[in-house]
Amino acid sequence: MQGVVKVNSALNMRSGPGSNYGVIGTLRNNDKVEIIKEVDGWYEIRFNGKVGSASKSYITIVN
């Protein structure tokens, strides 16, 4: 499943599904990500070869 980031500035990509996990990357508006699965309001995603988590509130699913 594919998604597109929708933010005003930037979205942190984290090492796990929650804001208490470390930041491993930064996503910008309109970045395209691969959604692997949903976990507690977060998506596990793949972006630029990295796997991490980002809040699903800022990612829109595209077909």
Rank of each mutant, 00 (worst) to 15 (best):
I35G: 01
V4M: 09
I59M: 00
G16N: 02
S55K: 15
V7N: 07
I36L: 14
I35A: 00
V7L: 06
L27A: 03
S53P: 01
G3W: 04
I35Y: 01
V7F: 05
E44C: 15
A10Q: 14
A54G: 03
I24P: 01
K6D: 05
S55M: 15
G25V: 08
K56L: 06
V39A: 08
N29I: 07
S55F: 11
E34K: 06
R14V: 07
T26D: 06
W42H: 02
G22S: 13
F47Q: 03
V23L: 05
G22E: 15
V33G: 01
L27F: 00
L11N: 04
N63K: 12
Q2H: 13
Y21N: 06
Q2S: 11
G49P: 02
D40H: 09
Y21P: 03
N29Y: 09
D31E: 08
V7S: 13
G49T: 05
G25M: 06
A10G: 11
M1F: 11
M13R: 02
Y21T: 05
R46H: 08
G22C: 12
Q2F: 15
N63G: 13
E34N: 07
L11W: 00
L27I: 06
V4A: 04
M13D: 03
S55H: 15
V62A: 09
E38H: 05
M1D: 06
E34C: 13
V62I: 14
Y58Q: 11
G22W: 06
I45P: 00
V39N: 08
V33S: 01
Y43K: 00
D31L: 04
I59R: 00
E38I: 08
N63F: 09
K56F: 03
G3C: 09
V51Q: 10
N12I: 14
K50A: 10
V7E: 03
F47L: 06
A54M: 07
A10W: 14
T60G: 06
K50C: 10
K6A: 08
K50N: 09
G22I: 12
G49Q: 06
N48Q: 13
T26F: 09
N48A: 11
A54D: 02
R46Q: 09
N48Y: 06
S57E: 15
Y58S: 12
P17C: 08
A10S: 14
S19V: 14
K37W: 07
I59P: 04
S15E: 11
Y21I: 04
G3P: 01
W42M: 02
V39C: 10
I45G: 00
L27Y: 00
M13P: 03
S57P: 06
K56C: 08
K50T: 12
T60P: 08
F47N: 02
V62N: 07
I36W: 05
N20W: 13
S55W: 12
R28H: 14
E44F: 10
I35D: 01
N30A: 08
A10T: 14
W42G: 01
Y58R: 09
T60C: 14
V51P: 05
G49M: 05
V39L: 11
P17W: 01
V23K: 07
M1T: 12
Y43Q: 00
T26E: 11
V62M: 10
V51K: 08
P17K: 03
E34F: 11
R46L: 12
G41L: 06
M13K: 02
D40F: 08
A10D: 12
S57D: 15
K56H: 06
M13G: 03
G18W: 00
Y58W: 09
Y58P: 04
V51N: 08
V39K: 08
D40G: 11
R46T: 08
S53D: 04
E38W: 05
N48G: 11
N12D: 15
I59E: 03
D31H: 03
R14H: 15
A54W: 02
N30C: 13
F47K: 03
K6E: 07
G22P: 15
S9T: 14
R14K: 06
G3M: 04
R28W: 07
F47V: 10
V33P: 01
E44I: 15
N8G: 12
V39M: 10
K6F: 05
I61Q: 07
D31S: 07
R46N: 10
S19M: 15
I61V: 12
D31Q: 08
L11T: 11
G49C: 08
I59G: 00
K6Y: 06
G22N: 13
G41M: 07
K56D: 05
M1W: 13
N48M: 12
N63I: 13
S57Q: 15
I24S: 03
L27P: 01
V62D: 10
E44G: 02
K37D: 11
R14T: 07
N29D: 10
R28N: 12
S57F: 13
I35R: 00
G3I: 05
K32G: 05
N48C: 09
N48H: 10
A54T: 07
N30H: 10
S53T: 10
G41C: 08
T60D: 13
G49K: 05
N8E: 14
N30P: 02
A10E: 14
V4Y: 06
S15F: 06
S55Y: 12
S9H: 14
V4T: 08
G49D: 10
V51L: 11
Y58D: 12
N8L: 10
L27K: 01
N20M: 10
V4N: 03
S19C: 15
V4C: 12
P17A: 06
N8F: 06
N12W: 07
G16Y: 03
S53L: 14
V33F: 05
L11H: 06
A54K: 01
E44D: 06
K50D: 07
V5M: 03
V23E: 05
Y43G: 00
S19R: 13
W42F: 08
L27G: 01
V33R: 00
S53I: 10
K56G: 07
V7I: 11
N8M: 09
V4D: 02
N20Y: 10
R14M: 13
L11R: 07
V39D: 07
G52K: 01
I59F: 04
R14W: 08
N29E: 08
D31G: 02
Y58L: 09
N48V: 05
S53Y: 15
G18P: 00
I24F: 00
N63Y: 10
N29M: 09
T60S: 11
M13T: 03
G16R: 01
V62F: 08
K6I: 11
V51E: 09
F47G: 02
Y43W: 06
K32E: 11
G18Q: 01
R14I: 05
I36S: 03
V39W: 10
D31A: 07
Q2P: 09
M13C: 09
R14C: 09
S9D: 14
L27V: 05
M1N: 09
A54L: 10
K50H: 09
N20G: 12
R14A: 04
K32F: 12
V7G: 10
N12A: 14
G16F: 02
I35M: 01
M1S: 10
V23N: 04
W42R: 01
F47I: 09
A54Y: 01
G3E: 02
N20I: 08
V5A: 04
I35F: 02
I24R: 01
G25W: 02
W42S: 01
E34Q: 10
N48L: 09
T60W: 12
V5P: 01
D31M: 06
D40S: 09
L27H: 01
T26Y: 09
G52W: 01
G3L: 04
E44M: 14
Y21S: 05
V51I: 13
V7M: 05
V23F: 04
M1Y: 10
I61K: 07
D40V: 04
G49V: 03
R28K: 13
G52R: 00
K56N: 06
I45T: 00
E34M: 10
G41D: 11
R28G: 08
V33C: 05
V23A: 05
K32W: 12
G41Q: 07
T60A: 11
V33K: 00
K6H: 13
P17N: 07
V7T: 14
I61F: 05
K6M: 09
Y43F: 10
F47W: 10
G16A: 03
N8Y: 07
V5R: 01
L27R: 00
V23T: 08
V23R: 03
N30K: 08
S55A: 13
I24T: 06
K37P: 01
F47E: 02
A10K: 14
D40W: 06
N63D: 13
P17M: 05
K56S: 11
S19D: 15
T26S: 09
I36H: 03
S9K: 14
E34I: 11
G52H: 02
M13W: 07
N48T: 05
G22F: 08
Y58A: 13
N30L: 10
E34T: 11
R28V: 11
S57R: 15
G18L: 01
E34G: 04
A54S: 05
N8A: 12
E44L: 14
L27N: 01
I36Q: 04
N12L: 13
Y43C: 03
Q2E: 11
N8P: 10
T60I: 14
N29T: 08
E38A: 07
P17T: 04
V39H: 11
G49E: 08
